[in-house]
Design a binder for these strands. Structure first.
Lengths: 133, 133
DNA sequence: CAGCATCCGAAGGGATACTG
DNA sequence: CAGTATCCCTTCGGATGCTG
């Protein structure tokens, strides 16, 4: 999929529309924790605790919440093994797999432009600082 | 770039790491408003008011805030024309352009799987409903 | 181990009013 | 027109404690 010459295509309007299901779904995955979980899962199958250890900084509560949302939208599949202690495993569905490339793109972008961004921030903050003088 | 057999590559660790600049930058763009603004801007140049009209549902305050963040990170370039009334234009920088493909991917994904997701939600909610019975 | 419930402080986000 | 500041309510998100 190449960069188009037109600024935006009409199909994008759906996602842009307020109050539509598309917008709601978009908002559901367009957040830090959801994207990180998708990225970490990749094509592996992980248990709750393993996942929590890999997504650094996420709290127990937020991981639960994020996983429920992704499960509800069919991005993540939850498998319960009725043992003692319980073993619950998470993996991406086909739809979830289809998101991996996009998420990876964002990670790659961050790495690629990190230095540039750091410079931009310094310049921005400097300008603000002496504007406030 | 094909799907790798390994679950995750080591370079991704940077973005995953807590408290690092990479993680902060990632969080900055991995949110609804920032992504929608980037998507709407595309390769066009828009004024504040035009942008506000196109990003449906965004408030004056949130647009300002989002644009400041993107400007600070060098994703968006802000140009002020010292006229009366003032004319301020926004467009994506080269770094911002590099994000378009990714954002578009997320929009495309949403459209592509929307029906499937709707079904998944119904099934999920139904299961929950009679579990609560 | 996994998950739900609760409490509570912090941040998000809308409405309004005021400057250049 | 663009931007800042203020007020105020809502949601986010962490910490803790309790169940199967």
């Amino acid at each position: 999929m190449e960069t188009e010459q037109v600024g935006r295509r009409d199909e994008d309007r759906d996602v842009t529309r307020v109050d539509s299901l598309a917008r709601e779904v978009f908002a559901g995955i367009a957040n830090k924790w959801a994207l990180l979980v998708i990225n970490i899962l990749g094509e592996r199958t992980l248990r709750f605790t393993e996942l929590r250890a890999e997504v650094e900084g996420i709290s127990h509560k937020m991981l639960t919440q994020t996983l429920r949302g992704l499960e509800r939208d069919g991005v993540v599949r939850r498998t319960v093994h009725p043992t003692v202690p319980p073993r619950v495993e998470y993996r991406l569905t086909e739809a979830g797999q289809a998101l991996r490339g996009t998420v990876n793109g964002m990670c790659a972008w961050t790495r690629r432009y990190l230095d540039e961004i750091e410079g931009a921030r310094r310049r921005f903050d400097a300008r603000r600082a002496d504007a406030a003088r």
